[in-house]
């Protein structure tokens, strides 16, 4: 489903990804762990199409298509979703308008009928309930005045509505207390199934107690240094990246 081969990328002339290989089959959840500066966030931005990164080599195929040739909105319509580490505030853009515009933009690109305001509200309300989100979050500006936990829940709400086939969770656990972590994890787990894969990027093993991965990869210095089962996360927690990845 997602296949990355020999990916190299740089920003401002500095090479960050140095020949990264990774494959995520349909229906699997993979975790990427690694120290600061290893290239975790760069990988998530390169995959989602943020400007400013120079791809110098390698390839990424997603559902058999060249992901790197697509605009960010086309990647989203193809089923890719990035849950931001730092969700962006959009003053003046109501959350409901934002969610509905996004959902209908994707449905349009996928050739599906758009939802009217009533259909959308019904869907959004039921998803919000599952994520224990107060309904007034629909009326507020996107992420404006949201707490850290609310912003992350809003990311998971977007994911639940847009229904991606691959979700990249970039440090979704950062800044979350244990209750919020559980809610967010349940939101992700609810989507798991044969048509849903996830790339969970995290510093800490803690999140992986709640979102249990099929595979764990260690990203060090721009490439995958080691891969293993879920027990690799525990090993990393106990012995540190330096020893495990050496």
């Amino acid at each position: 489903m997602l296949k990355i081969e020999g990916l190299t990328a740089e920003i401002d002339g500095k090479q960050i990804l140095k020949g990264l290989d990774l494959e995520v089959p349909a229906g699997e959840v993979h975790a990427i762990m690694g120290p600061n500066g290893a290239g975790k966030s760069t990988l998530s931005y390169v995959l989602s199409g943020r400007e400013g990164y120079e791809i110098t080599g390698g390839s990424v195929t997603f559902h058999g298509k060249d992901l790197l040739a697509m605009e960010p909105e086309e990647r989203a319509a193809s089923g890719l979703f990035l849950a931001f580490q730092y969700p962006v505030e959009l003053p003046g853009v109501g959350n409901a308008t934002f969610l509905r515009t996004a959902l209908n933009a994707i449905r349009r690109q996928r050739g599906e009928p758009e939802l009217d305001a009533m259909q959308f509200l019904k869907l959004a309300r039921s998803r919000m309930k599952e994520l224990s989100m107060p309904e007034d979050m629909l009326k507020r500006g996107v992420n404006v005045g949201f707490s850290g936990g609310e912003k992350k829940r809003n990311e998971v709400l977007q994911m639940a509505l847009l229904n991606p086939s691959l979700a990249i969770l970039d440090e979704t656990d950062s800044g979350l207390d244990i209750d919020a972590l559980k809610i967010v994890s349940e939101g992700v787990n609810a989507l798991r199934g044969p048509g849903f894969s996830a790339l969970v990027i995290t510093h800490y093993q803690r999140l992986l107690n709640y979102i249990v991965p099929d595979r764990v990869h260690v990203l060090v210095n721009g490439r995958i240094a080691k891969s293993g089962g879920k027990e690799l996360a525990l090993e990393l927690e106990a012995h540190g990246y330096a020893e495990v990845a050496a």
Partner: peptide, 28 residues
């Protein structure tokens, strides 16, 4: 640019994303 990318990463085409941000700017 961060706001623009955020909208586009949610499937909203660039032109529509720009329009949303300009509209939001004037809404206030």
């Amino acid at each position: 640019e961060n706001q623009l990318f955020y909208l586009r990463s949610r499937g909203i085409p660039e032109k529509a994303a720009r329009a949303m941000l300009v509209q939001a700017f004037l809404t206030e």
